[in-house]
Nucleic acid binder design. Structure first.
Lengths: 223, 223, 223, 223
DNA sequence: CATGAATGAGTCTTCATTCAT
DNA sequence: TATGAATGAAGACTCATTCAT
């Protein structure tokens, strides 16, 4: 299917840490057509620079030249790693979604109650976002941007299927309110966004906001 | 009023709602000695065109020339109504915020319970957003855009003070959870956004989603 | 011949003072085709504003709108007094040349020696320039500008014929060096420019510089 | 060297005059790892085109696109060599001043009398100006233009210090009139301008005008 | 593959001039 | 005549992308 906008490359995530098998597989799939591995280092440098600059200046207002410069590579090199600016943007979207998926699913309590599961997701989600506010900002920017194509959006949602399945079952067995999945999803994102904005404004109260946030979320969706 | 980024003009709102008679008279007098007054009609056409195009193409990706053309005026005319593209953007932000404020506060139950008040806000908010999805989209875009300056953001928040005051009191008398105002604000916006996204995906269920949405919201924030 | 770039008008100089007959005549000629007198006041206000702004901002960098505004008239009015920006520029050139001619020829010692004559011109020239540095600056700008057409240049030189005649005779009778008229002219202008620049840098020494300047000039051109 | 308004580049003078061998070598080394070095050729073509067009059309009236076209490069390329139109203008000013300085100081009779020195300057100055009337015109335009910043003016005056020193001494020992340096400077420029204008009008008499011009100049400033 | 100069289409903005009022 | 909004042709400058080295 050759991810639109992305060139082959054997990068292993923005930080090189191992990802869960499933994620790793879909990434491997994405890059299965590559002829020769390009430098992960440069690719990651470019993505990291993009995160920095996009979060500060916005996506459209950041020239590719600025990204190359911040990444310490030549202007033209950006285009050997990504076929265009949109290619970089879509790749970044996938990269961030994959990283988020990895974080959320790490140690996911597959045998726990739905509340346990949601608590796990909530805590990890909030923790990741709080730890990487720039990535969060960029992810928000990307979600609203018309430059992220639907193929990327679909692909980015892939790793979250397991979670959705669990929620669906909880609705069926009456533990959760009877609300459509996308709705639940929206509420989760929305409320964690609210929580994060609180944390951003008052970092000292992070733990408290996270706990309270989940309480509110939970009282909102449980039956 | 001397809003930064906006040129003088006798416009008053996106819809040209009525001005007091006396004001109208003195304006007419002034105009009799003027060549051609800045027309509300054109200004509104420009703002409306901007809403259309921004919502479809994005703010940065929409050329000013496209806006002028869509508004049926000459390219240069945009700049007699707004001092720059950013001027237009900020003016649009203020218009939308003002319109939203007007909608929300229309018939606001000042003597009702906090739940009544919140229900009023929720219903009007959801109704407005659902009726004008483009405006909503643009407002979201604007909220994330770095082109809306802090002065505009501050000014745009002004009319919502009354609401905040009511909520603050409800927290004090124990009707609402003890959560900071911005947090409450975030949750409201976030959950109505979730609701709206549901309505957008399935317009037939609008009333249901709105009702359910409020229930969830209310069970989330009440004590 | 209807002076290119100038509309009819019955202005009487930038300040309304009387001009020598000869000058007055050529100006009257210029305006002989006019149908109805426009307002001298506005015309002069426009020219005065142009001097101010041109001297500070440069000719090309000064928008006509700025001139109108500084003159306290409507943007469009500039074009009822001058047919275009170039028209205003050429009119201003003529105005300044005429004023300079008036100043130089006022009390010109027609029966004095050539040195007396030159001294008169020198003193009045330097005095006028020192008193009206903005006008001088603009005149220099105009002399170098390609927007002043040759017709204007010719017309502007008209009133200075008498002076040239006197110099020519002095060359013939051996009082002055045998140098072509334009050369003498250049030296005069050049050296007075030098003198003026000195005065501008050190206004207190004005009289001294003027005296010394003439001495140098005189020792340069006398036989 | 890091001249404001100029982009880095390995250019060195309008004519590409030779650089020391060692410098040339290291440049060659650098270039071997570069894609395409900023070319002196193009930079000079742009400056030459600017001289041509500025002298004919004026500085402000010449579009950058016209300069690029005349130089045979793409519109955008002008901005890889100069950061803006003003950058080009200031660079051009410095180039011309530097070239003039080189011409005037070439073979400067450091041990000769002040008259010898002035004669040398006069002859070379007049010769250069006569040989390159366009450059002269542009230099005059630049001197009057407000687009040449004070930093450039200061830098451009640098190489002429030696000359000023010599003149100062001649004033002290009584060979020259007791006039301030800037005054002397003005007179020199002014009178050579006069001379040049004569030569321009009658090229055949160039030598004569130059000789006469100096005589006049000398009789004006000597004691 | 890496580099960064070259390219030129695309953008925002200005401004002389017109003309409806 | 006076006014100033309307116009749209320029013009300076940006930037994604290409490609010679």
């Amino acid at each position: 299917m050759g991810q639109e906008g992305e060139r082959p490359g054997n990068s292993r995530g923005l930080r090189g840490e191992k990802r869960p098998v499933m994620v790793e597989q879909s990434l491997r799939y994405l890059r299965s057509t590559m002829a020769r591995p390009l430098s992960d280092e440069k690719r990651n440098a470019l993505l990291a620079a993009a995160i920095d600059l996009f979060s500060e200046t916005g996506i459209d207002a950041t020239p590719t030249a600025a990204i190359s410069k911040a990444a310490g590579v030549a202007e033209g090199s950006l285009f050997t790693y990504f076929k265009s600016k949109d290619g970089l943007i879509n790749a970044l979207y996938l990269e961030l979604k994959a990283e988020l998926a990895q974080v959320l699913l790490q140690g996911f309590p597959r045998d726990g109650s739905i509340m346990k599961k949601l608590k796990h997701l909530w805590d990890h989600h909030v923790a990741w976002c709080a730890a990487a506010p720039k990535k969060l900002k960029v992810l928000e920017l990307l979600l609203l941007s018309s430059r992220v194509d639907s193929a990327s959006r679909q692909l980015g949602a892939e790793p979250f299927r397991e979670v959705e399945e669990a929620a669906r079952k909880a609705v069926e067995d009456g533990t959760l309110r009877d609300i459509p999945m996308p709705f639940l999803n929206q509420i989760f994102t929305a409320m964690s966004t609210a929580t994060l904005q609180m944390i951003a404004a008052d970092p000292a109260g992070a733990a408290k906001y996270r706990r309270e946030g989940f309480e509110i979320f939970w009282s909102a969706v449980r039956r």
